[in-house]
């Protein structure tokens, strides 16, 4: 399976182009690192691929076909700030069940303590909450994962643990990944190849 975008451009209504002519492809089971200066549009690109935003120009294709606008989106995204990616008024069991309830073994693998599921988001640390967001994004119908600064706010040990678990799961299920980060050493440790933004875009 191949996720690709061709000549994507994005602009806010009435504003100048944020980026122009971005083309990129990620194959199943492959992890691609994306590095670029802040404000260049990396997160926006991720949001377009995951169906959260619409491009002004260009196309996103999964195996050569557009992704249907309804139903489970095969491209899921994990955001930098987990506290902003969950409903503060839901207990985490409900948040997680939005995609499906993972089996106990899978929770353990991501280092999730089942007691956390009965708590509110503000009762967990950022690292604990991020694991919940990852488990939610790794539903059985997920084919591609966009990891946007997924571990930037975590200490090195928590970062290494989360990445080892995610890489193992992605490998087993042949999930393709786009890893957006400013940390080149991290990108080189987890990715098969690393691209820089200036090589993707023409504008």
């Amino acid at each position: 399976m191949l996720l690709e975008c061709r000549n994507l451009a994005y602009r806010y209504p009435g504003g100048p182009y944020v980026f122009l002519g971005v083309s990129l492809s990620v194959a199943s089971g492959e992890a691609v690192g994306l590095i670029g200066p802040s404000g260049c549009g990396k997160t926006t690109l991720g949001r377009i691929l995951a169906g959260y935003a619409a491009a002004a120009e260009g196309t996103v294709l999964l195996d050569g076909k557009p992704i249907p606008p309804k139903g489970y989106h095969p491209v899921q995204m994990v955001f930098q700030h987990p506290e902003k990616a969950v409903n503060p008024r839901w207990r985490l069991r409900r948040t997680l069940a939005e995609s499906r309830m993972p089996e106990a073994a899978e929770l353990r693998r991501l280092g999730i303590d089942e007691a956390w599921l009965d708590r509110w988001p503000h009762e967990l640390s950022a690292g604990e909450l991020q694991r919940i967001c990852i488990a939610r994004a790794l539903g059985p119908r997920t084919r591609f994962l966009i990891a946007d600064e997924m571990t930037a706010m975590l200490d090195a040990i928590t970062q290494a643990r989360i990445w080892h678990a995610v890489l193992a799961i992605a490998k087993e299920r042949a999930i393709g990944m786009l890893v957006i980060t400013h940390d080149r050493a991290l990108a080189e440790a987890v990715c098969d190849r690393v691209v820089t933004w200036d090589r993707l875009s023409i504008g």
Partner: peptide
Amino acid sequence: RALWQALPRNGFKPLPGT
């Protein structure tokens, strides 16, 4: 030491437990 060795450039070793 575990914190240092968990950095991506120093082995990226995860320490088990919480």
